[in-house]
């Protein structure tokens, strides 16, 4: 499976990563090489094999739906890149119609 420049652009957008134009070619080559390396798994017949998601075959444990945490709103806001009145600030998402 070879990754083309336009594939890199598409994947980068899906992953929300801006990439300088000048690096696309290198990424395309490296991603193609890695994909070629991992293709090896297709040599095996796994028709009768169950997938292994947890190495101990454990089932995900769920806790009871109880309040266990105290309110740490202020502490968590300390790391916000931009905030005001206890909320995170982001660029405007709703465009005004002119």
């Amino acid at each position: 499976m070879s990754i083309k420049l336009e594939d890199v652009v598409k994947i980068a957008h899906l992953a929300r990563l801006s990439l300088p134009e000048s690096t696309l070619e290198q990424y395309a080559g490296q991603l193609s090489n890695i994909l070629a390396m991992v293709e090896k798994v297709n040599e095996l017949d796994t028709e009768q094999v169950e997938p292994l998601a947890n190495p101990l075959d454990n089932i995900q444990r769920l806790r009871k739906d109880e309040v266990t945490e105290t309110d740490q709103h202020n502490a968590f806001m300390q790391n916000a890149p931009a905030s005001e009145a206890g909320v995170f600030l982001v660029p405007k998402v709703i465009e005004t119609i002119e």
Binding site: V38, V41, L44, T46, V49, P51, L52, P55
Partner: peptide, 8 residues
Amino acid sequence: KAQKVRRL
């Protein structure tokens, strides 16, 4: 596919 190979 890889999860199956993981079991093998």
